[in-house]
Simulated scan of single mutants.
Amino acid sequence: MIDRLDLPALMGIAEAVLDEVTGVFVDGLGSPGIHIKGVGDFATDVDLALENRIGNLLERRTGIEVHGEEFGGSAPDKGTMWILDPIDGTFNYSVGMPMAAMLLALTVDGEPVLGLTRIPLFGQSYAGHVGGPLLVNGVAIPPVPDSPLQTAVIGFGAFNAKAGGRYPGAARAELQRRLSYRAGRLRMTGSNGIDVAYVAAGVFGGAVSFSTKAWDNAAGAALVRAAGGLATDLAGNPWTVHSKSLVTGNRLLHGELLSVVAEAMPGLGD
């Protein structure tokens, strides 16, 4: 099915759509989180407005259905589907912190084949599809270079140390502890999408996301692969929309990062 898709054309359409809504994103910085979805999880009015507008424009111009964080849609594991997170880093955004992004991916039978990450308040744009190259602010850049864990910056997903769940907070804290002296530096930006876009661009060497949501991870997985890096779950399986975590990195560092994961979180891989 991928062979029948004109990925460069679809990427161009998607970029144009995101261009059209960037002003809404920028103007809404600081919008309060008034739509409560769970403990510590909420959406702003801007989330809903952006998803509605982006989804309508994409479906009208491409004929491809959109699965979004706020309004859902058909399961994204069959056929061709856009997967959208209108504001990644919503907590940051709601308090006026500019570290937030729009994430958009195209998947085919659950595999990410195209990704776009926009960081409008920093004027940064990342886009790529299967076969590469990665485009940063519209300019093709070389494949992500190899770098060892000991000299790299690693993005790490936010967490509550007391939380339970599939990957308990205590296990995440242990991984963070071990990485603190194995990696060059750790960074917790509050946006998984930004972390992984920075991996694709070679700013970060790698990133770990514990999110189980496809809209948090699909765009980044596509970008990293377009840039020549690796995107898997915590157990090292290639990332798909069914994955319950995301580990990304350049080809050298990715294996080192998975080794530390295995040490810190034995038996907790996907």
Rank of each mutant, 00 (worst) to 15 (best):
L234P: 10
G220N: 04
T240P: 14
K213C: 14
G220L: 04
W215Y: 13
G228P: 06
D216G: 12
N217I: 05
L230W: 00
D233E: 03
A235T: 09
G229Q: 04
A231K: 06
T212M: 12
A221P: 11
A235S: 15
L234T: 13
A218S: 15
V224Y: 00
L234H: 06
F210G: 05
K213W: 06
A218Y: 01
A231R: 08
G229I: 05
L230K: 05
N237R: 15
W239T: 06
A219G: 13
T240M: 09
L223N: 06
P238H: 11
T232D: 08
V224F: 10
F210S: 05
D233I: 10
V224P: 00
D216A: 15
L230C: 04
F210D: 08
V241H: 00
A222F: 00
P238M: 10
S211N: 06
A231N: 05
P238R: 11
G220S: 03
N217T: 12
W215P: 01
A235E: 12
N217Q: 07
T212V: 13
A231T: 04
T232G: 08
A235G: 15
N217S: 09
N217G: 10
A214M: 03
L230P: 00
S211T: 14
L223M: 09
G228S: 12
W239S: 07
W239V: 02
L230D: 01
T212G: 06
N217H: 02
T212A: 13
G229A: 06
W239R: 07
G220P: 10
A226K: 04
F210C: 08
A214G: 02
G236I: 07
A214L: 07
A222I: 02
G220Q: 03
L230M: 11
G229R: 04
G236R: 13
W215A: 10
G229Y: 04
P238Y: 09
G228I: 11
A231V: 07
G228M: 10
A221I: 12
G236Q: 12
N217P: 10
S211E: 11
W239L: 02
A227M: 04
P238L: 12
G220K: 05
N237I: 08
F210Y: 15
S211K: 09
L230F: 00
A235L: 10
F210Q: 07
G236A: 14
G236H: 14
G228H: 05
T212S: 10
V241E: 13
F210A: 09
W215D: 15
T212R: 13
N237F: 09
D233G: 13
